[in-house]
Design a protein around this nucleic acid. Structure first.
Lengths: 143, 143
DNA sequence: CCTCTTAATTATCATTTGATAACTAAATTG
DNA sequence: CAATTTAGTTATCAAATGATAATTAAGAGG
């Protein structure tokens, strides 16, 4: 396996992933929040509780901007902050009840579209997809 | 394979893909173009020639905004437009020489980081990654 | 021809975002 | 305990983006 060839394959693969993700998540978020805010919410949903520092590492933002967006999400009652009892500089952020509801609805929309996308896949196909995701997650997209 | 379970796996997988893509492409683009412009350039690079309509379908933009961004890229001499000889409403966009150079450099940076990421992978691992990408591209992230 | 549709452009405006700097408060370190 | 580092906030400004509407020009269909 030529590594250069694999690299080009990866580029077009990630392009496809982005395109399909776009398609699945299109209009799934409520209009009251921006795309950046939705990305943050989604990250919190799958990784909660998280600290503001972890958010800006993953979302590639600066602390000040992360802080601002978190304030907005907080004003909209979608997240809650709890200070660490040991290190009081730290904060743990998690979804509020409203936030959970918003994400539940968004995920439901996305899931429907996903099911539609794989409706023709056989049992064997699904097994294969499952294993392929495991492989890539472990060997290529690890963190 | 439970489809619901597979869905949750997909969500965290795409999150990982986005995170790693961020990491690999961070600061790979010249500062003279915005993130959106870079995304468009990358799409053109891997799919050229493309029409403005195809770009806004894939990038999830409106035609007017796509048109504006393409004008900017054109002003910066990174892309060129050619009208279709049959249907003169259509345009085919491809990278200019400067555009090719910009993308070549960006891809070089990204490739170096990619090689670094897989440096400990064995020959068998690479084969497995290769097959996994093929599987997902064909059965899940098809267009 | 006339109408409708498609492809793309231009202009405008409110919002969002990115970048920077100055700041607070709580650890940590020597 | 003084100096430094870490975590996060607030304010501000320019630039990028999203949304909308009005417009041009060319095909397509009756």
């Amino acid at each position: 396996m030529d590594k250069k060839e694999l690299f080009y394959k990866l580029v077009s693969f990630t392009t496809s992933v982005h395109r399909v993700t776009n398609e699945l998540t299109k209009d799934a978020k409520p209009t009251s929040i921006s795309q950046v805010q939705y990305n943050i919410l989604e990250f919190i949903a799958v990784s909660q509780p998280v600290t503001p520092s972890e958010i800006n590492d993953c979302q590639n933002m600066t602390m000040s901007n992360t802080s601002r967006e978190l304030s907005k999400l907080s004003e909209k009652k979608l997240i809650e902050k709890i200070s660490d009892s040991k290190d009081r500089r730290k904060q743990y952020i998690h979804l509020s009840q409203d936030g959970e509801a918003v994400m539940k609805e968004a995920f439901a929309t996305i899931e429907t579209r996903f099911l539609n996308r794989i409706q023709n896949a056989s049992k064997e196909d699904l097994e294969e997809i499952n294993r392929a995701i495991d492989t890539l997650q472990e060997k290529l997209f690890y963190t």
